[in-house]
């Protein structure tokens, strides 16, 4: 039997790795993938909780999260492709026509 705390710890660690990836990396695709990691960390947490409570809400929410992740990936990659069309920009820093 895997205790709940293990699921939560795993979820937390992966979430932090993903968040660190978002903040650290300059490559937009890697940032996108780090966001996927964050969402998956949430899924691990949800599944752990779902098992603990003995109901399906967590799993259903996890399915919705996967749905949203798919939608986000599609739109995000489309934006990247349209950005990439006339100049090869992948690093976030080079996206600098607008000043922060």
């Amino acid at each position: 039997m895997v205790p709940l705390s293990h699921y939560l710890a795993l979820g937390a660690v992966v979430f932090v790795i993903g968040a660190a990836g978002v903040l650290m990396r300059r490559n937009a695709i890697i940032i996108l993938m780090s966001i996927e990691l964050m969402l998956n960390a949430v899924n691990i947490t949800l599944v752990g909780f779902s098992r603990q409570w003995g109901d399906l809400t967590g799993q259903v929410l996890a399915i919705f999260v996967i749905t949203v992740a798919a939608a986000e990936a599609a739109v995000g990659l489309a934006i990247l492709i349209s950005l990439n069309r006339d100049r090869s920009v992948l690093n976030v820093d080079e996206v600098n026509l607008l000043k922060w």
Binding site: R25, I29, A73, L77, N84, S88, L90, N91
Partner: peptide, 24 residues
Amino acid sequence: IMVLYLFSIMLMNAEVSVRLRQFH
């Protein structure tokens, strides 16, 4: 989703970015 990623990466000619600075 990951096939979508791979597809877009290949479309975007990602090899260029390998040589660039990777981290903030």
